[in-house]
């Protein structure tokens, strides 16, 4: 409950902002502090669009969640079996 509240509350409380990533904010701040700095290497590969990036992030979360769910499934089955005996 508290988790959902803490996540949703900012969306309701703060308006007119885009909830941009803090990583990007830091990148902008580097530009502000040291305007002459140029990154000396760019990303090896960048997802072609925000949609594809979203897909890959979802994939990451799904793979993780699948394993976590599997683990608790195994544990649940085991404790049910113990109860039967």
């Amino acid at each position: 409950m508290a988790v959902a509240l803490l996540t949703i509350a900012p969306l309701a409380m703060v308006h007119n902002v885009r909830f941009q990533g803090a990583d990007n904010a830091a990148r902008d701040l580097i530009g502000a502090i040291n305007p002459g700095y140029r990154p000396w290497l760019s990303q090896v590969w960048v997802p072609p669009s925000a949609e594809v990036e979203g897909l890959l992030f979802t994939l990451q979360a799904v793979l993780g969640a699948l394993l976590v769910g599997y683990f608790f499934g195994v544990c649940k089955a085991r404790s049910d079996k113990e109860k039967e005996i």
């Binding site: 996540t7 900012p10 409380m13 703060v14 909830f19 803090a22 993780g64």
Partner: peptide, 11 residues
């Protein structure tokens, strides 16, 4: 993988 919004208006 979860980028969550925060009160400062960034995620």
């Amino acid at each position: 993988a979860l980028k969550l919004p925060s009160i400062t208006g960034s995620s």
